[in-house]
């Protein structure tokens, strides 16, 4: 993984236009604080749910609340530790090529990179901001699939999902051809898994035809 070196913008500016190269903001390289806060949040949620849990009277002495409380405390502590770590040492800028390569090598080699004083593995593409537009189209396609699957059926909703993801990833010049590929995909899956392996997929509006 090469992402520790990704300085990301704070949430909320995901879609809005922003200057091409903003001055170094305090949040740059510190967006991971969000992960720490999320961890603390999950920990607090677990704690609250554990305290208010309805426990059946017959349960043995280390009951159902014991393990969750340990995990809840652990998550609050770990989330705080991560947030403090990120505040003290933000992720480096992507421009600093050397630092980037080093982090990447450590990411891949893990602790072993420190134990074995070997050569650095090759570096891949430079890290950049996340492309929320493409991610959004992919998530939107999956969400649309979840909404359409039962009423419309696998054949069309599956093809639409394939089309949406392929669209997000690239080639936007030949929509008709891409739609054809998507339909072939969903038909092949229908044949192989429904007819071949016996999975049950909703037929939807094409139910009468199939």
């Amino acid at each position: 993984m090469s992402l520790s070196s990704t300085p990301a913008e704070p949430r909320g500016t995901d879609t809005g236009p922003r200057p091409a190269r903003p001055a170094r903001h305090w949040w740059r390289g510190r967006s991971e604080i969000f992960v720490g806060l999320l961890t603390i949040g999950i920990g607090l949620f677990l704690g609250e749910q554990t305290l208010t849990m309805h426990v059946p009277d017959n349960s043995a002495s280390p009951g159902p609340q014991f393990f969750p409380s340990v995990v809840a405390v652990l998550m609050v502590v770990l989330g705080t530790a991560l947030a403090v770590q990120v505040i003290r040492r933000p992720a480096p800028e992507p421009e600093s090529g050397l630092a980037d390569t080093e982090t990447r090598a450590h990411d891949q080699a893990g602790a072993v990179g420190e134990l074995v004083d070997g050569e650095r593995p090759p570096a891949g593409a430079p890290a950049t901001h996340s492309d929320w537009r493409t991610v959004g189209i992919v998530i939107g396609s999956v969400a649309l699939f979840a909404l359409l699957l039962q009423p419309v059926g696998w054949l069309l909703s599956g093809a639409l999902l394939f089309f949406g993801v392929a669209w997000a990833f690239g080639d936007k010049r030949r929509p008709v051809f891409e739609a054809g590929v998507a339909l072939v995909y969903s038909s092949v899956v229908q044949l192989a898994f429904v007819a071949g392996l016996g999975l049950k997929l909703p037929a939807g509006i094409l139910g009468g035809v199939l």
Partner: peptide, 11 residues
């Protein structure tokens, strides 16, 4: 490739 993987995942 990735469209196919996504399709397989939801399937």
């Amino acid at each position: 490739l990735y469209a196919g993987i996504t399709g397989f995942a939801v399937l």
